[in-house]
């Protein structure tokens, strides 16, 4: 007669060793079948239980159950361990080189001039200045005469002009003729408009000068518009466009269509006013021209200059972009080299 308790002890030791030795779940299953299966070793031992005297059965039966439970627990633990190892191995096998470049996303972008024009128009829009689009090809009368720049007047020297083959028709040299068009359209209502658009100058194309460039003109007309308003409004604009802490100053200047005329300088954003190459060591950048609308121009727009007053200003988005980003060649804007455009 075999000694069942001893057989159980031997089986437990053997089975535990076999479990430890398994490398994968298939081997684990084999071990389970061999020891714990219906035809396995434990079952074989337990079949001998019936031959025992009834008094011994409960104690041996309890022992047998304990061995079974212990082995099942060990089996589950081993399965858990093997699965964890397998998962870890699988993840290790799937590891990627995270330093490889990402898949390129084909991006579209707006032209830098569009971007800055939008920014300018948005700021002015917030202050109630609405966009007024005017034409590129203008009459000499609109571009010059009605803006208080008569033919042969010395002020004409300020604009090098492309004329067309049609007498009296030219490519606008500034967005200012739109002032007259807007005034004639809205008179006698008050006006707050900005006029973005392309302008043209008869100039050699160089790093510093172009034959075409954008301008954004602004115009406010009303019964109570004064130079203090001009300063306040333009300072608000400068603070939003260039930063709230930036200092702003106004210098006397001359434009035939405004009087008094001024130029607005903004503290250089490249050197914070300390002086650098871009600001020619002055600490200031010239940003825009402005002034109170000249009485003649108001009159030409239909407004009585003794009752109405107004201010106007004009700035160059490309120039502003160049100053902000330290671009030294204006030709980049119309060459449309992606190496330039992709930087915006």
């Amino acid at each position: 007669m075999t000694d069942i308790p001893q057989a159980l002890t031997v089986l437990q030791a053997e089975a535990l060793t076999a479990l430890e030795a398994t490398a994968d779940e298939a081997a684990l299953e084999q071990v389970r079948v061999r020891y714990l299966g219906r035809k396995g070793s434990l079952a074989a031992i337990l079949r001998g239980l019936a031959d025992l005297p009834p008094a011994e059965r409960p104690a041996v039966g309890k022992l047998a159950n304990e061995v079974k439970e212990r082995l099942e627990a060990a089996l589950a633990a081993r399965r858990e361990a093997l699965q964890a190892a397998a998962r870890a191995a699988a993840l290790a096998a799937e590891r990627v080189d995270v330093t490889l470049p990402g898949r390129p996303v084909p991006m579209g972008r707006l032209h830098p001039s569009t971007q800055v024009l939008r920014r300018i128009c948005q700021i002015w829009g917030d202050m109630g200045f609405q966009i007024y689009r005017s034409r590129d090809i203008e009459t000499e009368e609109m571009n010059f005469e009605l803006l208080n720049i008569p033919a042969h007047h010395p002020a004409r020297d300020m604009w090098d002009t492309f004329y067309t083959m049609v007498d009296g028709i030219l490519l606008r040299t500034h967005t200012s003729p739109g002032q007259i068009r807007a005034m004639r359209e809205f008179c006698p209502q008050p006006i707050r408009v900005i006029l973005p658009g392309m302008c043209y100058r008869y100039e050699q194309i160089t790093a510093r000068s172009e034959i075409q460039f954008h301008q954004v003109e602004g115009l406010a007309v009303g019964r109570h518009v004064s130079m203090t308003d001009l300063k306040g409004t333009l300072i608000s604009f400068a603070h939003r466009m260039f930063g709230a802490v930036r200092r702003v100053r106004f210098r006397a200047s001359h434009f035939p269509f405004t009087e008094p005329s001024a130029e607005m300088d903004v503290e250089c954003m490249l050197c914070e006013g300390a002086g650098c190459v871009v600001c020619k060591q002055t600490g200031w950048l010239e940003i825009l021209g402005c002034g109170m609308v000249h009485p003649e121009v108001l009159r030409n727009g239909g407004y009585d200059p003794a009752v109405y007053s107004g201010f106007a200003f004009g700035m160059g988005p490309e120039r502003i972009t160049m100053l902000k980003h330290r671009i030294e060649d204006i030709r980049y804007f119309w060459t449309n080299d992606l190496r330039f455009l992709e930087q915006f």
Partner: peptide
Amino acid sequence: IPVTEMADRLPPQ
């Protein structure tokens, strides 16, 4: 010259 905000009537938007 002092600085003011525009007090004039806002034109029709």
